[in-house]
Structure formats: C-alpha cells, structure tokens
C-alpha cells in the first residue's frame, strides 16, 4: 500500500472513474454551505470545504431507514442495504466519529443494519483545508487521524498526497497505483499540514485534557451551568441531529396504503427533545430542560467513555453552529465547570 502524489487533474479523472463505477457520495456546496450528497461529476467535489451541515453518519445510520417489513399480523423480514458505496472527503474528526459509531453498533448486540452498510462503505478521508467557524478538533485529538479510513487525501500545494491503508482502498485506487510515489518533500509538507491542523483547528480552546472530562463531570451534577444554559434551550434537538456521535433512535411502524403490510422504520431521535424519556401514560422521566441538557453533556463526556472508551465529542463544532440560542458550545460548558461556582 503506497503513498503517491497526484495533481488536481489526475485526481479529477480518478473521481470520474469512481463515479462511473458505482455509488459515490462526496462533499459539495449547497447554497453557501456544504453537504455530503450523491456525486454526479468530479467537478462538484469540494475538498476545500470547512464542515458539512450534517455529518456522514447519515450513510451508515440514515435519518430514516426500514429495519423490517411485515405482511399481515406477523412475518417480519429483515431489510438490509447491501450496495457498496464510496464516501469522499470525510474530515478526520468525522472519521473518528465513525469509528465510535462502529464500536457502538458492533458492541455486545451487533446491529446488522448499521454494520451491513458500514461493511459496504469505502471511506476516502481528506485532511482539513479550511477551518470552520467553530471547529475545535485540535483540542479533542481529532484534527488528524491515522486509522479508520481506507484512503487519506492531503492537499500539499498544487497536488494531493494519496495514502491508501486498506484492501478496500487498494481496490478503488485503480490507475493511481501508477502515480509517482510521494517524495520526501511532499511527505514533509503533509507532516506540516497535520501539525498546522492540530495547532489551528481550535476556534474554541478547551482548558483541560479531554481524558479528564469523566472525572470533572463526576463532581459537577449540581453545577449552576446546567440551569443557566438550559434556560434558553428550545428543546429543538438541533444539536443532536447535527452531531456525528449522536445515534439515539426512535422506531415506529409505517403502514402501507392497502393496510395489509408495511415497514418498521427507524428514525433519528434526540435526548434534548422533550418527550425522549416519556413512557406510555405520560410520565416523563426527564421532564426538566436542565436535566435533558445535562444528560447530553454527561453522555458525551462520561457515559459514552465508560461504554466505548472515548469522549463522544470529536470537536466538529456543528452543535455550536446549529444552536439557535447559542447555548450548545461544549467547550464553553466544560470550561465553565472548571470555574468555582
């Protein structure tokens, strides 16, 4: 598995080839922002993007998916999406998030729906070229990654360093195998990109090592920040929806027009939504906004680390941008916990 350099024209030709070969999703401009969407021509690919509105988790865990179909009263059948696809342009923080979701859905009870899609995915990552307004991946150790992708693209000057790390990566490299091997200068420049990204993808500065968060949170249940911030929370769930490590879901039955069958459907859900913890009969086990607000930060900083061994925040900053009332900045919240009450 080699590291090669390609110029922009060659990269374009390669992407055109991938598009002809199958399903490709890539980062593209939409109005004045960016999104992952089906890539129809290489010219639309925007590897110079800052951040996408919705993370690429939507290809492994779609916002809405059929889990099962049913005919009549019983007879549930599993639906699986088994068509291979390529994701192009995944930033390192999103690569880290996908690795966390893999741990969640492959751990104890394997979720065959997620894992089937995941196995079909070839991830072409791309180092960040433009910092978004609220990125803080540099503080979370996710500004760069060395695993979790199949190919890593890094722009150095007027060409890209293409680094294939897996069999899946090799399979889609095609003609790029014959591209010139990356020389010492290109590799050194890539090293510089990594160093810069670790240094500059810090629009907000976390004043602690992320690993210390579980301990900090342990002692912060009654900190006034939960009440203060949540007073302005609309419980809209935007922070949940744009988060690359939020995976909570709702399941419901969707009946076909003839009323004889239908599908059991899974949708994204969010712990900040008012009725997330409500049971039949109407009792809501987390009815206060402050409790829901705290739950989200505890989940990211304490509960998930206990479950999968990582802080479940990768510093993408999407929640900060999505929050209407500007209360969802995790760095602000966690820094505030360091202050004396």
């Amino acid at each position: 598995m080699g590291v090669v350099t390609v110029d922009l024209k060659m990269l374009n030709v390669w992407v055109e080839g991938l598009i002809r070969g199958g399903r490709v999703f890539g980062v593209q401009a939409k109005n004045n922002r960016f999104q992952f969407a089906p890539l129809l021509m290489a010219a639309n690919l925007r590897l110079d993007y800052d951040v996408t509105v919705i993370p690429p988790k939507k290809y492994m865990q779609p916002a809405r998916e059929d889990l099962l179909t049913f005919e009549g009263a019983a007879g549930f059948e599993t639906c699986l999406d088994q068509e291979p696809f390529i994701l192009i342009g995944v930033h390192p923080y999103d690569v880290a998030a996908i690795a966390q979701m893999d741990a969640v859905f492959s751990g104890d009870n394997v979720d065959v729906h997620y894992m089937t899609r995941r196995k079909q995915a070839t991830v072409v990552a791309c180092d960040v070229q433009a910092a978004s307004a609220n990125v803080f991946a540099g503080c979370m150790g996710t500004a760069t990654v060395d695993k979790g992708f199949d190919i890593l693209l890094t722009r150095v000057g007027d060409h890209y360093v293409v680094d294939s790390r897996t069999h899946k990566g090799e399979v889609i490299l095609g003609n790029l195998v014959k591209a010139p091997k990356a020389d010492a200068v290109s590799l050194a420049r890539r090293e510089q990109v990594w160093e810069d990204n670790r240094k500059y993808l810090r629009k907000h500065e976390l004043r602690m090592a992320p690993e210390t968060l579980p301990t900090l949170l342990e002692a912060s249940c009654d900190h006034p920040v939960w009440e203060e911030k949540s007073q302005r929370c609309f419980s809209c769930g935007s922070c949940n929806m744009v988060c690359p490590t939020c995976y909570c879901f709702d399941v419901r039955d969707d009946v076909r027009w003839d009323l004889k069958g239908g599908a059991r459907v899974r949708d994204w859900d969010g712990c900040m939504l008012r009725d997330f913890a409500t049971v039949a009969g109407g009792h809501n086990f987390r009815k206060n906004r402050a409790d829901r607000y705290r739950h989200r930060y505890y989940r990211k900083g304490k509960y998930m680390p206990a479950k999968i061994g990582h802080i479940s925040c990768v510093g993408c900053g999407r929640c900060i941008s999505a929050c209407v009332t500007k209360i969802a900045n995790p760095v602000e919240v966690y820094n505030r916990l360091l202050e004396v009450r």
């Binding site: 007879g75 599993t78 699986l80 088994q82």
Partner: peptide, 19 residues
C-alpha cells in the same frame, strides 16, 4: 437505495411470531 432481504445474519430487531 437497494433493499435486499437476508435471513442469514441475526437481526436483533426482528421479532419471532407468537400466538
């Protein structure tokens, strides 16, 4: 997206029939 059915792998969400 293409949906194909498979009964090969265990699906933790698939109920079994009861009467």
């Amino acid at each position: 997206m293409a949906q194909t059915r498979s009964s090969q792998e265990k699906d933790i969400y698939r109920p079994e029939p009861a009467t």
